[in-house]
Each structure stands twice: as structure tokens, then as C-alpha cells.
Write a protein that binds this DNA or RNA. Structure first.
Length: 647
DNA sequence: GAATCTTGTCATAAC
DNA sequence: GAGTTATGACAAGAT
């Protein structure tokens, strides 16, 4: 009996180890090398939190140069990710591993509940044939002493590595208490618990690697082994498993949501301490649990900003880790950039760059007039702005289009660009929604918000002028480069209005300005040209965008029609096959039926000579084969033709 | 340096 | 008739 138990226990352990080698290797790697984010990235499941692509990392860190979106490295990266996702979607072949792991774990748990595993068994498991990595993995997944140690060494953390229902190492009172506490704990605490869990896991691994730190259970498991060995067949074993799992169902939710980090729940397929196996058994994981996954992930991402939680970062989503640690908050940079730009836009400028004006005063207006007019109403125009044209959302569309691709919105992006450059501060009341709504439905691109702002008075000239220069850039050449030709012309001719104002003000106000300010003929002509060019520029942008949209729509329609055509062709082929089969069946049935018919003399009809013909009135008549149906139909057709000819 | 793309501008028709 | 919009065409700069 002892020998049998030994063989069985060793067999189970070896089977567990073997299966763990198949399905759990990556998990232990992820734990042992949690800081190596690429490995984590590979091992992670199809979690939404993991599908975030660290563009910024590649873009900002690849050889210290920016990576173009069309960079082959990026494409390769995307392709690799896509393939990985596809492989993941094929399903997890590690469920058997999870089940076996759970079995061993349950044995240990029961042992612990009863008397505890024997020393010999522990010796076998801890000093098995597996290598250190496998040992650590195996211990982390299955071994009772490992779970026991973790549970005991981190009592304040609750039953992290082993779910209460799975290992049963903690008392029920403690479980309930921990559940209650963790149910009410905020997400940050959940994240923190998951982080500490990782620490405890690694501590457990380290402790197991050190025999001196091991605490071999002293409780006997004879009773459990006897129960186990008394099972006659696998059905009994399955029933036991089912019973155990049913007992665990009540704790699955809490175990997953409270004790298992996102990394554990979604990456560790082997189910650390049986948790994943519980998930495998309880396939209909509730939406609440999934939500908890996401929440925990979010909480981890948000709460792991502290540097002291480096260990927890190993269990964080790859993107989160990269965002928070690897790239200097590059993930936040996007939001920060937007926020900063918004702030800059809202700040505006209240002063005029007197240095630039001084430089402009020395320019001959005639020289400026000879320049090609460029109202500079587009941020990414050919004026050489810092943003390349390729960064626009559409390659052929101008940046003047709003983000929702609604076309040029009455200098919507011009407002952004110019405001960011500090030329005007009208966008304090500017509403992008209003502007975008006026694009396709109302072709009036005027923005009333532009005209509510009184022009800034020129202190030294006594005329009104809008703010000009950028606050953050004191280099005059930058302003020369950023300012459009029309703006330069307007300034050179002392026109106290910006191009935006000139273009967007209503015609009544524009005419009033022309009349009330006592402009010269040249100034009036320039004002009209600026207005005309500005509006035409927007119109051109809208026109081009419409053209592109039309082309895109037509291309999509062509693709759709092509797909529809292919589908119809397939259906046609299928229908033809079906019709052929049905025809053969009808022919065979006809032959059988004719063979059973008798003529007037009682002799059976010859199927080769007679056939059945269904008339239009539904009557079925027996006809000789000499007059097939086709001939009759053709005859009918010819008759019809003859009748038509007669008519 | 040619090819291509992007963008501004002009001319013109239409509203 | 003036103003605006749409669009083709052209040119200049960027890629």
C-alpha cells in the first residue's frame, strides 16, 4: 500500500511537472523575470489592458530616433502582436495542466486540513527531478508547503497566492474577514494587494529555493491518501473534483477579484495556487469578475506610479509598465501634451512682440506685396511649421480639418495653431463643436467667437492689434517663419486686424471696418485679398477633403460590391450543385415510380422508355421518353413565338 | 534631379 | 451686384 501510494504520488507529481512544463513555463518566466517587459508582453493574454501598443516606446526609444509610423520595425512589431493574438485566440491548451495542478493542490489542501502532508511526500516534491525554475514554478502552482508558507508569511495580505476555497489554509473566519475587507477596499488597494502578492510569490519562490527556509508540513495525510486511493476509477475521481470545484465556486469570485492580480488571472494559465484552474472550471465567469479584472488592472496602472512598488510593476500590464517606467511617462505625454496645448491655447497672449514688430517695420511693404500670398491659416502649411504634413490625420487633407473629419471648420485648426502661437486668444470662447457643426450643414465658416474679442491696442502706435508672438519662444526668426505672408503684409501696412479676424468676421462687420477705419486704397485692397484668399483656402481644403472622402467612399463601395459579388457567385455555385443533386434525385424517383407502374395489360412499364411529366395544373402524366420535357418546353416556346409573329 | 504629394492661390461658375 | 462657396488648374515647396 505504501509503495502504491508512493508511485501514485510520484506519478501525480511528475505528471504535474510534465504538464507544467507545457503550459506553465511562460508563467514562471514572467514571474522570475517580471521586469523584462517584452517577455511579459509575449506571455500576456488577450487582455484589453495588454493590447495597448507602446507606440511611444518604439517611436521615442528606437535608437534614439523617432520612428515613422510606417517604419518596418513598427510593422513587424504589429505583425508579431497580431500573430500572438491569433495564437492566443486559438484557445488555451493548458487547462489539463490547470486541472492536474488543482488536483495536487487539493490533495495538499486536504492534507493540511486533516493532518498535513507527510515529510516524505514533501521531500519528493521539493527535491524532485525538476530544475530550479520548474521547481519554483511547480511550487508556486501546486505544492502545498509553498502555499502554506505564503499564506503564513503574509497573513496580513490575505490569502493572496491561494484562494481561500482552493487551499483552505486559512480559517473561514479569516477568509470572511479578508473578503469583507477586500470587497470594500478601493481599487488602489487591490492593485497594491496584487503587487504585494507578487512580492509574496517571489518570496515564496525564494524560500522554496532555500531548503533552510522551508517549513515541511508535519500533518499526516494518511487519511486523505486513503480516501484518494479508495477511489475505484476515474469517475470517482472526477466526482471528487466536481465536488471540490463546486465548493470552490462560491470563492471563485472573491479569489479572482481580490487575490489574483491581473497578471495572475490572465497570464498565469496554470492558475497560481489553483485560481486559474478555478477559472477554467467556472467558465461562465461573470461579467462582474471581468469588470474586476479591468478595475484591478486600472487600479494597478494608476496606483503604481510610486517607485516603491517596483515589484508590483512586474505584474502590471506591459503597456502600463512601459508607460510608467520605461519611457518616462510617455503614455501620459499624449494626454499631457493635449492638456498643455489646451492650456497654451487658453492662455493666449496679451502682449505684442515688439521685437518682431520692430523688425517688420523695416520691411518694405512693396517687397512683402511681391511675395506669394500665404495667409498662413494652416498650421501645417508650407510655412515650415514644426509639425510635418505627414502627421495630419489624412495624408492629403490639411490640418485645418477638425478631428472628427468634418472638414475645414472655419479655421478651426487655424484657431488652434494660431492660438497656440499666441497670435490671438479668441479660443477662450471658442467651441470646436460649434465650428464643426457648421461645416457640412452650414457653409458659413464664420466663427462668432472670433469677433467678441476686442483687438489689443497698439501701445506705441495707437492702433489695435492682436497678440502676435509665442510666449514660449523668443526667437524672432521663428515668428517670421510662422507668420504668413498676408499677416506680414497686414502688419507692414499697419492693419490692426489679424488674418483670422479679417477672414472670419461677418461681411457687414467687414464692410464697417473698411469704412470706419479710414483705410487707404491699398489697405482696403489688401484686406479684401486677405479675406478672399483665406476663405478660398478653406474652401479648397474642404473641397479636397470632400474629394478624398468621395474617393474613399467609392473605394469602400467597390470593395463591398466586390465582396457581395463573390458571395453571390458562391451562392450561385452552391445553388447549382443543389439543383443538380435534386435533379438526380427526381430522376431516380421517377425511374422508381415508373418501374412500379403497370400498363393496361398489367405489365410493368419500362423506365427507359417512359417518364413522368408534371403539368402546369399539377397533374402528373406518364409520357414516353421520346417526348422529353425539354422538347415540350421548347415546343411551347416555339408556339409562343409563332403566336407572337402572328400577332 | 525627377517624381510625387501637399498646400496655397487664382479663375470661374453657381448660389 | 456683392459676397460666398465649390472646383479645376497651376505653382511652389516639401518629401
Amino acid at each position: 500500500m505504501q509503495i502504491a501510494k508512493k508511485y501514485l504520488s510520484e506519478g501525480l507529481i511528475q505528471l504535474t511537472i510534465l504538464l507544467s512544463l507545457i503550459g506553465v513555463r511562460v508563467d514562471i518566466d514572467s514571474y522570475l523575470s517580471g521586469y523584462y517587459t517584452p517577455l511579459i508582453e509575449i506571455n500576456l493574454g488577450p487582455s484589453s489592458a495588454y493590447t495597448q501598443t507602446p507606440f511611444h516606446n518604439l517611436r521615442d526609444n528606437l535608437d534614439g530616433y523617432s520612428v515613422h509610423p510606417k517604419c518596418p520595425e513598427l510593422e513587424y512589431f504589429f505583425a508579431s502582436r497580431r500573430l500572438l493574438d491569433e495564437v492566443r485566440t486559438l484557445g488555451s491548451p493548458r487547462f489539463p495542466t490547470q486541472l492536474n495542478a488543482w488536483l495536487v493542490h487539493q490533495v495538499s489542501a486536504t492534507d493540511k486540513a486533516d493532518c498535513g502532508p507527510s515529510t516524505s511526500n514533501n521531500t519528493d516534491t521539493s527535491s524532485g527531478v525538476q530544475n530550479p525554475g520548474d521547481e519554483a514554478r511547480d511550487e508556486r502552482e501546486h505544492l502545498p508547503e509553498r502555499g502554506q508558507e505564503v499564506c503564513q508569511t503574509s497573513p496580513d495580505l490575505g490569502p493572496r497566492p491561494c484562494s481561500p476555497g482552493a487551499c483552505g489554509f486559512l480559517k473561514k473566519e479569516e477568509d470572511v474577514k479578508v473578503k469583507e475587507e477586500e470587497d470594500t477596499a478601493p481599487l488602489t488597494q487591490l492593485a497594491h494587494s496584487s503587487t504585494l502578492e507578487q512580492e509574496s510569490l517571489l518570496e515564496g519562490i525564494t524560500a522554496l529555493s532555500d531548503p533552510a527556509r522551508q517549513h515541511p508540513p508535519t500533518i499526516d495525510i494518511e487519511q486523505h491518501w486513503s480516501n484518494l486511493l479508495s477511489l475505484t476509477d476515474l469517475d470517482d475521481l472526477d466526482s471528487l473534483v466536481t465536488e471540490r470545484l463546486s465548493d470552490l465556486d462560491s470563492d471563485i469570485s472573491s479569489a479572482i477579484s481580490q487575490d489574483v492580480s491581473l497578471h495572475d488571472a490572465m497570464v498565469t494559465s496554470a492558475g497560481v495556487f489553483g485560481v486559474a484552474s478555478e477559472r477554467a472550471e467556472s467558465r461562465p465567469v461573470t461579467q462582474q469578475q471581468r469588470t474586476l479584472f479591468r478595475l484591478e488592472s486600472t487600479g494597478s496602472t494608476q496606483s503604481d506610479a510610486s517607485p516603491g512598488m517596483a515589484m508590483g510593476l512586474a505584474a502590471l500590464p506591459f503597456a502600463s509598465v512601459c508607460n510608467l517606467t520605461g519611457n518616462g511617462n510617455s503614455a501620459l505625454s499624449g494626454c499631457l501634451d493635449e492638456a498643455v496645448f489646451d492650456q497654451i491655447n487658453q492662455l493666449g497672449l496679451e502682449g505684442l512682440d515688439t521685437q518682431l514688430m520692430g523688425s517688420l517695420e523695416g520691411i518694405d511693404p512693396q517687397v512683402l506685396e511681391d511675395l506669394d500670398s500665404d495667409s498662413g491659416l494652416s498650421l501645417e502649411s508650407s510655412s515650415g511649421g514644426p509639425v510635418s504634413p505627414g502627421s495630419s490625420e489624412m495624408s492629403s487633407s490639411s490640418s485645418s480639418y477638425c478631428e472628427d473629419e468634418c472638414g475645414a471648420t472655419g479655421y478651426s485648426s487655424e484657431v488652434d495653431s494660431v492660438a497656440s502661437k499666441g497670435i490671438i486668444d479668441y479660443d477662450t470662447t471658442w467651441s470646436p463643436v460649434d465650428l464643426s457643426e457648421s461645416v457640412w450643414h452650414d457653409h458659413s465658416y464664420s466663427s462668432p467667437a472670433f469677433f467678441n474679442q476686442p483687438p489689443v491696442t497698439f501701445p506705441h502706435k495707437g492702433i489695435k492689434e492682436e497678440p502676435l508672438s509665442d510666449v514660449e519662444d523668443d526667437e524672432p526668426r521663428f515668428h517670421d517663419r510662422e507668420m504668413s505672408r498676408d499677416e506680414m503684409r497686414a502688419r507692414s501696412m499697419c492693419i490692426p486686424f489679424s488674418v483670422l479676424q479679417i477672414v472670419n468676421m461677418p461681411v457687414e462687420e467687414f464692410l464697417e471696418v473698411l469704412d470706419s477705419h479710414g483705410f487707404t486704397t491699398d489697405q482696403v485692397t489688401l484686406l479684401r485679398d486677405i479675406r478672399r484668399r483665406g476663405k478660398n483656402k478653406l474652401a479648397a481644403q474642404n473641397c479636397r477633403k470632400r474629394k478624398l472622402d468621395a474617393i474613399t467612399g467609392l473605394q469602400e463601395e467597390v470593395e463591398m460590391l466586390h465582396a457581395q459579388r463573390n458571395k453571390l457567385l458562391r451562392e450561385k455555385q452552391l445553388t447549382a450543385k443543389t439543383m443538380g443533386a435534386v435533379g438526380q434525385q427526381i430522376k431516380q424517383l421517377t425511374r422508381d415510380l415508373v418501374a412500379r407502374l403497370r400498363d393496361d395489360s398489367g405489365r410493368p412499364l419500362n423506365p427507359e422508355r417512359f417518364t413522368l411529366q408534371c403539368g402546369a395544373n399539377g397533374r402528373v402524366v406518364v409520357q414516353p421518353v421520346r417526348r422529353p420535357a425539354v422538347s415540350t418546353t421548347t415546343g411551347n416556346k416555339t408556339d409562343k413565338r409563332k403566336k407572337e409573329k402572328k400577332q
